[in-house]
Amino acid sequence: MKIAIASGKGGTGKTTLSVNLAAFISENDKVVLCDLDVEEPNSGLFIKGELIHEEEKFKMVPKWVPDKCTLCGLCQEVCNFNAVIKLEKQIMVFPDLCHTCYACSELCPEEALPMVPVKMGELKHFQLNNISFIESHLDVGREQAVPLISQTIEYVEANFDKDTIKLYDSPPGTSCPVIEATKEVDFVILITEPTPFGFHDVKLAIETVKKMHKKFGVVINRYGIGNDDVLKYCKDNDIPLLAKIPNDRFIAELYSSGELIYTKVPEVKKQLKNIYDYILKLKENNKV
């Protein structure tokens, strides 16, 4: 059972919800929490477990072999990303533009562009009671999050069975990294705040997950500020509203000291239970 926690707008509470929901579920069941916001992973600020595994992650990029190259330029022609550029006397490769499609390498008649690994980041696996926490960190200066997100999901899939509830704390926005983080999940939780900005961006996120034919529901965070537009939109469009997390200064204080919230705010615990019950129902239906 794979559940992505995503949002259009950044800073609406993806990590707050992910870590608190994971901890809440772990009181009853094993749960996997995976931070896929590899450019800025921060679930680890709240979940501190024992490090049980770490590995470096690599992506494959072409490397030019001058002695073999005839400067025919086919590599440049087939590259959709301008990652391979033919100059007068050389081929230049831009690893951060490369999408690892292998076209230049496979099609080169002289085999002058073999694929070689370049390091892009690190994956860490922690254990804290019932929570298995996995996070990946993209190296500073690397531009592409997608290959690392994809390899992190592969690690989770390979190490945990199908039935385990897996929460994917996703990157913000609606671009490639979010698509990668959500494309194989069974359900997407979209968290937003009830402000015009939050409403605008959650609509983009809703359009995105609809296009991907994903089941999804909405959680409103900081409920009580802004207006009723998100509520009304969900009602008018038959979108399940999974929970409303109240706007409360105390919650912000707990968050900023790296603490879990639901253990100290009963209303949040109640809202998390609503979400957990919804997940259990989904899980039951998925089995049929």
Partner: peptide, 8 residues
């Protein structure tokens, strides 16, 4: 071009 306008 979505990517690599600079090198191009």
């Amino acid at each position: 071009e979505a990517h690599g306008a600079g090198p191009k």
